[in-house]
Write a protein that binds this DNA or RNA. Structure first.
Lengths: 144, 144
DNA sequence: TTTTTAAATGCTATCCATTTGCATTTAGAC
DNA sequence: GTCTAAATGCAAATGGATAGCATTTAAAAA
């Protein structure tokens, strides 16, 4: 995708095939992926890329705000997705790890209140809801 | 502390000196501690306890809701504290990792809205604000 | 286009928080 | 006190992530 090259230019990163590959996979998957997920998907595309390169690329992207991360509660891995332009919150399924993005932010006012109350200079916040998605509510016991 | 023994009884866990020690340290520290922090503090008290025991005790406590965990963004370690009775949110300093607990929850209504909108069965949520505490705003560059 | 060079990559070894296996000890029921 | 399951210590293993270093490559300079 042509816009990916623009992103890399803007971020002052060289336009390498590996970086474009990582962007492609994240874009078409449109979901959170671990470094290892990306590694396997790359392999599946017959791409030759080492896991450490993936980690390095992801670090670059996070630093440049091209990619954002999330913590699933039940695993130690870090998950990555293309950064959303807009600030968003999440519904995270404790069974299948599916993530639903919520638009809009209900706590702007609250943030200002606590910021001044505690003289705390707030840079960002996370608001994540954990529970069970519609599918997993039905087939309760099946682990994915 | 006597009430700690009650907690263990309620949780159906044996009242061992190690478990009481971990509770003591968490109580008097009144802050988030990593497993290793606990290990060092125990050593400092001349207590003989192995790191793996600490991990096992913390796992027990988390399972029984005696202890709760938090993710600091800038480290891979898990941090633990005595569980607060009341649901609370956090202000987390990106410089010194200090955590301020916020009482009350501003998003009950929002939670219900998204829960029914997405037919998502929400079990719990996290709301954490990251930024710089009053102290660290002043002495900007000093890492703790 | 060719040359040049700093950035990017592959491979391997390493780190480090956490977990596990197993023999030993201990809390607490009897 | 005796007994047994639970708890513990120690050492090794695990697993995600990182670092070192030689090689390759993007892209600026000539």
């Amino acid at each position: 995708m042509e816009k990916f090259k623009d992103w890399l230019t803007e971020a002052n990163l060289k336009k390498t095939k590996h970086r474009l590959l990582v962007l492609d996979i994240l874009y078409e998957t449109n979901d959170f992926l671990s470094a290892d997920d990306l590694f396997l998907k790359a392999k599946h595309k017959d791409a030759n890329i080492s896991l450490s390169t993936i980690y390095r690329i992801l670090d670059n992207f996070v630093e440049k705000n091209i990619v954002s991360t999330i913590n699933m509660e039940n695993t130690k891995q870090v998950y990555y997705e293309l950064a959303h332009q807009e600030h968003s919150h999440h519904l995270i399924c404790l069974n299948c790890n599916k993530v639903i993005h919520l638009k809009g932010c209900p706590i702007k006012a609250y943030e200002e209140t606590v910021s001044s109350k505690y003289r705390f200079n707030i840079e960002r916040h996370t608001l994540d809801f954990y529970g069970y998605c519609e599918k997993c509510q039905n087939k309760k016991s099946s682990k994915v």
